[in-house]
Design a protein around this nucleic acid. Structure first.
Lengths: 126, 126
DNA sequence: ATTCGTGCAAATGCTTTGCAGCCGT
DNA sequence: ACGGCTGCAAAGCATTTGCACGAAT
């Protein structure tokens, strides 16, 4: 549904999401936003994330486990290390050059590219 | 963990997954496999899907809701219609040409590309 | 004043897990 | 016979939802 009114809870969520670059889960965000609004509820957080996503203000990043969120709504590629679980932005990959031409498609509104593998940090350790 | 023994449950799961192309969820698979092995349990299904994924025999396709599975383990792009929820293979997109060069990456073992939008069927209806 | 957004708590839905017994090796 | 795999049921988590109240317009 459309956003009709402003709320300090939603403002705090967007603000937190846009000022960090580590692709937090809903619970990560909940813990952070609670330092600004101590009695915000998880339900409110989830309601707002869904609403913000529907309005194109937040990106949901599916990675095979708990969803992550991104304040950068420009489509961009991600890399998930399957050892440590961290998700990184891929700066050297120009996702905007991708085009889709299949018969079934009427319109592409968004896309998510997730590469899986081993990051250099985990490679050093093991 | 590695696969050590054969079981008719696992055989039926792989067989079902490789003979359909509609990217079933775990529950979809459960209902289908139950027609072959009526008393197979959901636990067994999930245990086998995880095990098969770890052994590279099945692909998990994250799409922002319940995970889907694919017997085609060759990396390929998908398109999800956000109206009807169906997931389609994209044949005209050569995902194998993608290369990744970011600093953080040691090794890419797999990747999933999901485009979101409106399919032609849903466009006709609305 | 209206009604959307919130906090709380219960409910839901998907997935995992403990356990005793079965089956493949 | 050993130990992996299974069915069953309970548990675990992430997410959603109903409701009464508070806040934005």
């Amino acid at each position: 549904m459309a956003i009709e009114r402003k709320s300090k809870q939603r403002d705090a969520i967007i603000n937190e999401l846009c000022s960090r670059f580590d692709h937090p889960t809903a619970m990560d965000l909940y813990l952070s936003v609670r330092e600004i609004i101590p009695n915000i509820s998880l339900g409110t957080l989830y309601r707002n994330l869904t609403q913000l996503e529907e309005n194109g203000m937040v990106l949901r990043i599916p990675d095979g486990s708990t969803d992550r969120f991104d304040g950068n709504v420009n489509p961009h590629a991600h890399f998930k290390c399957t050892t440590c679980g961290n998700v990184y932005d891929l700066m050297n990959f120009n996702i905007n050059s991708l085009t889709f031409s299949d018969e079934i498609i009427n319109k592409v509104t968004n896309y998510s590219l997730m590469a899986f593998g081993l990051c250099k940090n985990c490679n050093k350790i093991n």
